[in-house]
Amino acid sequence: MAVHRGRGFAAINYPIGMNLGGDPSQALVHSNPDGKFTVALSAIDLGQGMKSVTRQIAAETLGIPIDDVYVDTADSDTGPHDMGSFASRGTHRMGNAVIMAAQEARSVMLEAAAEELEVDPGDLVTDGRGNIHVRGAPSRSITTMAAAQAAQFKQGRTIAGRGIFLIPLSEVDPETGEMTPVSTFAHAAMLVEVEVDDETGEVAVTDMQSAYEVGRALNPGLVEQQLRGGAWMGMSHAAWETTEPYYPARDHGPVDFNHYLMPGPGDLAPHHISVLERPAEDGPYGGKGPGEMCANPVLPAVVNAVYDAVGVRIDELPVTPEKVLRGIRANGGARPRQAL
């Protein structure tokens, strides 16, 4: 009886957003009389950081400090329409909609500033610190607050913008079936090491090394944390979690957290993450978004590592001790593929 070590590899391509076109997201941006801006969205931030990222995108496009942007989201009664937070689409779809809305709002803001400064709006630039000035003449300037107040109280102008991201529907060639299902792919590769106990059938993930290509990492801290948390969830899906351990039978299905297994803080594996930045042409400032793919490569990599360790090919998740032991028995013993 022994513990066998194994190594498994997996690589994935992951499409951003829904296939076959459509998939709209809207954003509305407007200024308040204090020169700060509100971004209205209906998409939901459920912890992935969408509010932070859309706030960064709006500030960058408007040319104002990030502190001056407030993102108001998740009220579908008052916000503009959105398909929702799923399909790894948030950064890409909502980000593009926010850019479009912020560009329109910015151009009105510059028109208002131009009227006050008696110059052409095309000659104005923003400094990202709350000022608008004539290109090459920083002293001829007006604050965004003064421009917003002039628009509101003097000029009768609405500093606002509308944005939508919508992909044209993809036609399917009736002859060949050819189409353009998605606009953007993200990519990842993952290497895991496991230890498999051939007496108990238990699988422990002992190391994870990953590389992710998610376009430009608009907020590197959030990207890395989403990848870290997602890999934990992938590890959990690979070797722990299931609602129907004997699917399609419901027998022994967990009914509460006592029985629904997940790795706890004592079951973690070190995870080294490399983020490769390759800005996407159609992404907001090059971003795609890690989304669901952060959990995906762990599953096939763990299954491959178990095969490497004991020669058992598992084809139904999760990799439970029972399946490993049955496989070892069917093979007449553990058959390590290699000595690590």
């Binding site: 912890g47 948390g229 997602g230 890999a231 934990w232 803080p265 973690l268 995870h271």
Partner: peptide
């Protein structure tokens, strides 16, 4: 913290 479940972070942070 072993009695506190977290679905999102993977505990490491």
């Amino acid at each position: 913290i072993s009695g506190n479940l977290c679905r999102c972070t993977g505990y490491e942070p």
